[in-house]
Simulated assay, not measured.
Amino acid sequence: MSFFATAEHEMERLKYFASPEGRDDLYQYNQKERRTVLEVLEDFPSVQMPLEWLIQLVPMLKTRAFSISSSQSAHPNQVHLTVNVVSWTTPYKRKKKGLCSSWLAALDPCEAVSIPVWFQKGSLPTPSPSLPLILIGPGTGCAPFRGFIEERAMQSKTNSTAPIMFFFGCRNEDADFLYKDLWLTHSQNNGVLSEANGGGFYVAFSRDQPEKVYVQHKMAEHSRRIWNLLAEGAAVYIAGSSTKMPEDVTSAFEKIVSKENEVSKDDAVRWIRALEKCGKYHIEAWS
């Protein structure tokens, strides 16, 4: 870029960034701040880069993968997504937003927009109506399970279906209780999430009280019912953030198996591993 800079001070700065001495400062300026090509060009306005060079410099946009959060039976010819608008503050206190999520959020739902879409097989297999389910989906991890639950609700209208236990978590009930009415509707009046049908809906609000409460705490409260469903052949589905959640939830399952089945911790770990090997323990996590 220094070759195309006409301002002397900008040229010198760019040359410094490209030198061994400027490597650390370049990292602080660019990678750590996650600056885009456009932001760099705005910081160095004298750079007059030919279009063919710019095209080679700018990377192609990466495709975004989202879990489908709707049932084809409940919503024919539609695909619903559950998207969190990504936002963060850089080390230098600059406000940043995710490119795709913020663009989607800014769309007018009353206007038609053409978006290229590719469908591919996900990591969570579609369960049969006769398979009991234990679903763990905090935050936007609930996305695929909205489709699961809608589908089973449609199936239950004409056939008998197995129960579903669903553990959902969010920070605050008033701020981010996603699909609240949907879950509560299906957990009442013999719905597919009702305890009367052998299932249940349990939610952890992590910030609504002094001590933090997560889905694994709610799981511990219902350990006997979880074990009973596991003993009946239930499959486990976990979806959400790839930070600590999958590991913490797996640890919670191991503790439940150890306690309720009266086996050692090592035996409980092996029990969960066996569940995974037979295709009944699934995790879909993202960063």
Rank of each mutant, 00 (worst) to 15 (best):
E151G: 05
I164G: 05
K255A: 15
E262K: 15
E260I: 02
E276L: 00
Y281E: 04
G98P: 02
Q78V: 09
V86Y: 10
L275R: 01
A5N: 04
Q56V: 11
N77R: 10
S19D: 11
A143M: 08
Q216M: 04
R13G: 06
E39R: 03
F4V: 12
R94N: 10
K255S: 13
Y237S: 00
N159W: 10
S156K: 11
V215C: 09
E232P: 06
P129A: 08
Y16S: 08
K265Y: 07
D108N: 14
P20W: 06
P138G: 07
K212W: 02
G147S: 07
L229I: 09
K62A: 14
S67W: 00
W286V: 04
S130I: 11
M245G: 00
C100T: 15
N172A: 08
T36E: 07
L193A: 00
K157I: 13
T63K: 12
K244M: 09
R171T: 13
T82L: 14
K157E: 15
Y202G: 01
S223A: 12
K180P: 01
S19I: 07
P20A: 05
H282D: 00
S101P: 04
A196H: 12
L178C: 04
K244Q: 15
H75R: 12
E12R: 11
A175T: 14
S70L: 03
F253I: 06
K97A: 09
V113T: 15
N159R: 13
S70G: 05
V83A: 01
G98I: 06
L81I: 05
R207S: 12
V236K: 04
E173V: 11
K121L: 12
N190K: 14
E247I: 10
A7W: 05
V263Y: 00
P91W: 06
A7L: 13
C170A: 06
V215G: 02
G122R: 01
F166L: 11
Y179W: 11
A252E: 10
D43Y: 06
M245K: 06
G139V: 02
P127D: 10
F205V: 10
V79M: 08
S241M: 07
L230S: 05
S67H: 06
G137S: 06
Y29S: 08
F44T: 09
G137T: 04
I256R: 00
C100W: 10
G240R: 02
I134T: 06
A106Y: 05
K265D: 14
Q72I: 14
S70W: 01
A74N: 07
A143W: 04
F148W: 09
Q72M: 12
E284S: 11
L104V: 06
E21K: 05
S242V: 09
M165W: 01
N190C: 13
Y281T: 02
S19T: 09
A274K: 14
K280L: 03
